[in-house]
């Protein structure tokens, strides 16, 4: 498990004032709830908040910071897949499956994380908000009053991961038929067709164009 409190601004030479200002305002509004941030200068921004301030974080992002465009909301299951990635040759012994949960940018403590991305047209910046979901209580408050478009995204997360959203008017399956059992995007959900007939492994590697000297042919448009 990775550490809980990671505030990691990279050590590149450029500092990103616009993004650091956003982090500063978020910290000012939410205080202790901002438990992890990560800035790629000139590129992107990740912020992790605590579970009980998930909706306030959305409201702050939308009202105070002007992130009015909603991109998406989804979840990540950080458990490494117990079935491997089927990239190995079928004749070799299967590799040892990894079991350690390593989370990504802005840290994380739990196996499941819900993350959402919002965008600001005025600032021309995007923001990724993450929140940990504990294994024993897979639920979080809904973002529906903040962004109306999150309706279907939350339904999709429910059926794919099993995370319920408290306060959502009707949580029904979005994509899967009603009798479907299981939550497909969890890492311990197997793809049965691959177990019945395993993938033959990496067989073809296409040669790079520069290796064959194909770039020097005459049939190239100038």
């Amino acid at each position: 498990m990775s550490s809980a409190d990671t505030t990691d601004t990279t050590t590149a030479t450029a500092t990103d004032e616009a993004r650091e200002e956003i982090v500063a305002i978020l910290t000012e509004e939410l205080g202790e709830a901002v438990v992890g941030t990560h800035i790629h200068p000139g590129d992107d921004l990740w912020v992790r908040v605590t579970r009980d301030t998930w909706r306030e974080a959305g409201i702050v992002a939308r009202e105070r910071l002007g992130f009015r465009a909603f991109e998406f909301l989804s979840a990540i299951d950080w458990l490494p897949s117990p079935f491997g990635k089927n990239e190995d040759s079928p004749t070799d012994a299967p590799p040892e499956p990894k079991t350690e949960i390593v989370t990504g940018y802005a840290g994380g403590d739990t196996r499941f994380q819900v993350f959402a991305r919002v965008h600001s047209h005025s600032r021309k910046l995007g923001l990724t908000l993450k929140v940990d979901i504990p294994d024993d209580d897979l639920s979080i408050v809904t973002w529906l009053p903040v962004y109306a478009g999150v309706n279907w995204h939350e339904r999709e997360v429910l059926e794919m991961f099993g995370i319920t959203f408290v306060g959502h008017p009707y949580l029904l399956n979005l994509y899967l038929p009603g009798e479907f059992e299981g939550h497909p995007l969890r890492k311990d959900f197997p793809l049965l067709a691959r177990h019945v007939k395993p993938w033959p492994g990496i067989v073809d590697v296409e040669p790079m164009p520069s290796d064959d000297g194909a770039a020097e042919s005459e049939d190239v448009a100038e």
């Binding site: 009015r68 465009a69 909603f70 991109e71 998406f72 047209h121 962004y147 109306a148 478009g149």
Partner: peptide, 9 residues
């Protein structure tokens, strides 16, 4: 504003 809230693009 509705378009932005729903995420239309």
């Amino acid at each position: 504003d509705v378009a932005l809230a729903y995420g239309l693009t």
